[in-house]
Simulated assay, not measured.
Amino acid sequence: MNTFELKTKVIFGREALQYLQNLVQKKIFIVTDPYMVKSGMIDSITKYLAEGSFQIFSDIVPDPPMELVVKGVGEVIAYQPDAMVAVGGGSAIDSAKAIMHFSREIGELEKMQFIAVPTTSGTGSEVTSFAVITDKQKGVKYPLVSDVLIPDVALLEPELVKTVPPAIVADTGMDVLTHALEAYVSTKATDFSDALAEKAVALVFQYLLRSYESSEDMEAKEKMHNASCLAGISFNLASLGLNHAIAHNIGGKLHVPHGRTNAILLPHVIEFNSNITGFTPKDYSEAAIKYAKIAKLIGVTGSTVRLSVKNLINEITKLMQRMKMPTKLTECKISTEDILKEKKSIAEGALKDACILTNPRVAGISDVSEIIHKIS
């Protein structure tokens, strides 16, 4: 038996931020990063709130550590807000999720509303039960998974992603594609998660390059913001796989941006998961057949499943090349020596990562090591 439900109210499109007017009579705790404050972008949030009715916690950093969460919890409990508003990319929203959860439990703030406002089109964190917190001493990223982490409201305002630099548009957009494709071939995939993943993939191939090429293409910005959310809902239902399991550990050890790491891995993980051993239908895995369906969806189908999967991989690689993305870790200013030094621990960590449990093909240490070798 399966269930399908959405906890999060999603408000999308231009002027979505007007929803914040509902908070004008409440105390608000805002979680964001220093750039949002220094650039003045946070004013797009606070202009809807009454003066003196909010407190801003802007200490968020990439790969948020547990120490940051502890500090945030202390400030929330001291302030006693009616609502928490997370504004930013995955790091800000993930941090806010952890801060919100522990504040509700420790500070007896069970009724505190949680609103997520993404400023990048990538993580889908505004609708998921996932958060990633880093242990900096061990160099490991820990995925937290619990329905209590899901925001109550998500505000998808395309104006907030208008000024995102092209390189970040590429990284986050490829993260969306990875989310959708991993959810699509997950062992927990259903008709419902598949429908959301298919739409997200279609939107990515139609609008990501446009969003990368022009900051003024608001249709592309809005569609990629929607795609990110749809992919988030899909993988929240079906979970992820080997791609993210490896990426979490590469990020923790080598500090390559998450979306970029996912993109570098994606062609190789698709090839591994497809596991095509011959040329007849009996040689095609279920994952390969589903990848072939995606190839057909985006218009690059082949005469066989094998060719369709190959065409899908080629189309992903072509998209990355057009966005000037690296295809190897060494192109991310990571030395071969550092990769070799961390290779074993990355592989071992990937096999312990929760995301690997729903990968369509079981991977061993040698399989992961081989993938790392291919992207080095």
Rank of each mutant, 00 (worst) to 15 (best):
N2P: 14
N2A: 15
E5I: 03
L6V: 12
N22W: 07
L23S: 09
M36F: 03
M36V: 05
V37Y: 08
K38A: 12
I45W: 14
I45E: 12
T46F: 07
E51N: 05
F54N: 07
F54D: 15
P62V: 02
P65C: 05
E67P: 09
E75N: 05
I77E: 12
A83L: 02
G88D: 13
A98P: 07
H101T: 11
E105N: 15
E108F: 08
E108H: 08
L109V: 04
K111E: 13
F114E: 11
I115N: 08
P118Y: 00
V127H: 04
V127F: 03
A131E: 08
P143T: 09
D147H: 11
L155N: 07
P166M: 02
A170I: 02
E182K: 00
A183C: 05
Y184W: 10
V185A: 08
S186H: 00
K188Q: 15
T190I: 04
D191S: 14
A197T: 05
E198Y: 07
A202Q: 12
F205I: 08
F205W: 08
L209M: 09
L209Y: 10
S215E: 14
E216G: 03
D217V: 02
M218T: 11
E219W: 02
K221T: 12
K223W: 03
M224F: 11
A227S: 09
S228A: 12
S228I: 01
L230H: 06
N236L: 00
S239P: 14
L240T: 09
R260Q: 13
R260V: 13
R260M: 12
L265A: 04
L265C: 06
L265T: 05
L266M: 15
F272E: 11
S274I: 03
T277M: 10
F279L: 13
D283L: 02
D283C: 04
E286M: 04
A288F: 09
A288D: 11
I289R: 14
K290I: 06
K293F: 09
S303E: 12
S308Y: 01
L312M: 09
L312I: 06
E315R: 12
T317Q: 10
M320R: 06
M320C: 07
Q321A: 14
M323L: 09
M325W: 07
P326L: 04
K328P: 11
T330I: 08
E337I: 13
I339H: 09
I346F: 06
D353Q: 06
P360I: 06
D367K: 01
V368R: 00
